[in-house]
Amino acid sequence: MSILAGRHTRVLVQGMTGTQASFHTKRSLDYGTNIVAGVTPGKGGLIHLGLPVFNTVKEAVNETKATASVMFVPAAGAKSAIIEAVEAELDLVVCITDNIPIRDMLEVKNILKNSHTRLIGPNTPGLMTPLEARLGIFPENIHRKGKIGIVSRSSTLTYEAVLETERVGLGQSTVIGLGDDLVIGMNFVDVLQEFMQDDETEAIVMIGQLGGMFEEQAAEWYKNCLNRKPIIGFIAGNSQAFSATVGYAGDIITRGKITAEDKKEALSDAGIIVVEQINRVHEALAKLNLATDD
């Protein structure tokens, strides 16, 4: 097993005919991802990378029974593309697109409330289930199939976490980048819930950072979680310098001042193993005494 997407997930690619999308779709196909179609309005009927292209998500779903989508649509059209995927009742949308206006994402979040569709991203490297499904832009060569679930707010630190599992001979069940934007779809709690129920996942690495209260929510949830698996947590952004310059000033007035230290404390209190440096995640993993993955 794996979470949210695996070898049997039928995937379509929204905006597949674009340059970046073509490049990554081809790589994902070569990796063995079960991509069944592409969607580009106005290009229906075309065959691209050996796959049929449809004008709408609905058509593509009707013809191919796809249940998930990876999206490379340009920012200006991303909102309607996500809404289209929600209306076609896809289970999962992974939105790679960067630079989507915040108002569009606020509207999308409202629409998601009344649907079963799960959104990962935007501005994310996507989802990776090693040897099964690559929904996004992950560098597949660093992954190995295994028992560690990884969920991260920072795109690039996700790769760092993957490399850490590798250092102690462990692989990943599924790796998810939540996305670097202010307003995102799935959050820590949503993903952690999935990992807790996944047979294959034995431990989880979560990578948080300054800004928002997503780590605190995760800690609160974990406290009351039954049958919990170990979580190793890392938070970026300790240096005092950030509070004024970086991130989003709205955080302080909407939530009060929250430091990386506060976040780490919340995680520790909930029983999450907090590591001070990203490159020490492997030490914490080693202490869990899990059998290595081959």
């Binding site: 991260s152 707010r153 920072s154 795109s155 690039t156 630190l157 760092e160 670097d180 990578i207 950072q209 300054l210 890392f234 970026a236 952004g237 300790n238 240096s239 310098a241 950030f242 970086v246 991130g247 990386a260 001070e276 440096q277 990203i278």
Partner: peptide
């Protein structure tokens, strides 16, 4: 020079641990 804000923050933290600043 980094690609990603999370890495920038983590790297800054590490510089500080080593007694230096960004």
């Amino acid at each position: 020079i980094v690609n990603g804000e999370g890495v920038a923050m983590a790297l800054t933290d590490l510089l500080k641990r080593n007694g230096s600043n960004i």
